[in-house]
Design a protein around this nucleic acid. Sequence first.
DNA 1: TGTACATCAGTGAACGCGCGTTCACTGATGTAC
DNA 2: TGTACATCAGTGAACGCGCGTTCACTGATGTAC
Lengths: 228, 228
Amino acid sequence: VSTTSYHHGNLSQALEDAATDLARAGGPEAVVLREAARRAGVSATAAYRHFAGQQDLLERVKQRALGVLAERIGAALALIPRDGDATDAAVARLFAAGRAYVDFARTEPGYFATAFRRTGAEAAEGGSADPEHSELGDDTAFRMLGTILDGLVSSGVMPADDRPHAEYAAWSAVHGLAVLLLDGPLRHMEPADQDAAVERTLRLVVDGLTSGRAMPDAPTGSAAPDPG
Amino acid sequence: VSTTSYHHGNLSQALEDAATDLARAGGPEAVVLREAARRAGVSATAAYRHFAGQQDLLERVKQRALGVLAERIGAALALIPRDGDATDAAVARLFAAGRAYVDFARTEPGYFATAFRRTGAEAAEGGSADPEHSELGDDTAFRMLGTILDGLVSSGVMPADDRPHAEYAAWSAVHGLAVLLLDGPLRHMEPADQDAAVERTLRLVVDGLTSGRAMPDAPTGSAAPDPG
DNA sequence: TGTACATCAGTGAACGCGCGTTCACTGATGTAC
DNA sequence: TGTACATCAGTGAACGCGCGTTCACTGATGTAC
């Protein structure tokens, strides 16, 4: 950007930025190598100095998108007060994380879709083939969810027996909602109904994990998790 | 199929069948008009006598897929005994429907993906533009879900206040699970873990809607409302 | 400080791909009288 | 029962599309001595 030299200086970054813009505007389908090069003011061939190909470029954008999603969730969690009743805080964190997830999807539909697009770049997993190690361990958002659920158990609102695989259940609810709202049959619903569906789903998750032990609407402790 | 005449006789059906095979094997991307025509033993142009174009063909397959999904759920529901405790039956029906949904997705991943693929054929909605009428009202599976949830309320295991929008929450959980398992980050999990994730998610839905009032595993005769 | 040379980061033309779709057409079928 | 004609349901060649990718190349930069 700064220098007009023959050598671009930071073409890799520029291409990734352009590709990110494409993804945000049009989803993963819109991540077209030639267009990204065009926007970077460079021939399509130049991209091959920095990326193995289009799939590689898409994979970078995907990782970015996952990172931003994790950031959004982290930012939402940071707003939850740490003091006060442990149970209220744990429940509030679960709510906040879920809401941030869906908000990201609704605010950045193209970006969200790209985050969960299968790229062809995963055949390069190497021979170590650790079956225990999916990409899940690298997923910051997923680890945050795990921590939140641990908090539900340690604060006593969720039985330890219910803990195993709970992250998959919670994630499914919130992810399914996002998918149905963005691309699915719910996309034509009135916005107010969409909002209601979001609230109802978040409540389903909390109630489902705590079997009704959490009382989000009761004005009991200090931290009030739900705006009403 | 029967006649080898110049006029095919049932080309529309044959094309739709071929397109369905393509979708089942490779998802919506694989629904290629030319390939469907090839399999029907006919030139690509012939398809235009029966369909407006590729999008139209895809839309037919999508509707078929939704129909089959509804059938599967209906078949699973038909196995639930109608006699006995109303609450147990209502809960069992919810479980069965959810499991059938996920089973269909796992058994027929391409078909399932096609059922929820956005086709370009929906700009043809006409001018009436009833905002209340999404395609949801036509969705048999969705209506079945509504009936199941009504059963939870009428049998007393789910408060009537919790009923609004509950179908979106339940659907989200089960749909998200399917998506994460098929195309998402859960697709590399061990099958046993996948099964556990399914069971855990179904339990989340039931617990979330009944706030623990349902006791699916307890061998008691009737509904025991106390979560402990 | 100059110079020779390797390397780096870009260019631009070209290819193949397979698709969806259009076009002018033709052989088969149905119908009116 | 025959015949003229409209219509129906196919054919096959062709086009344009925009992409990802390869190729041989060249100008700019860095480095050894």
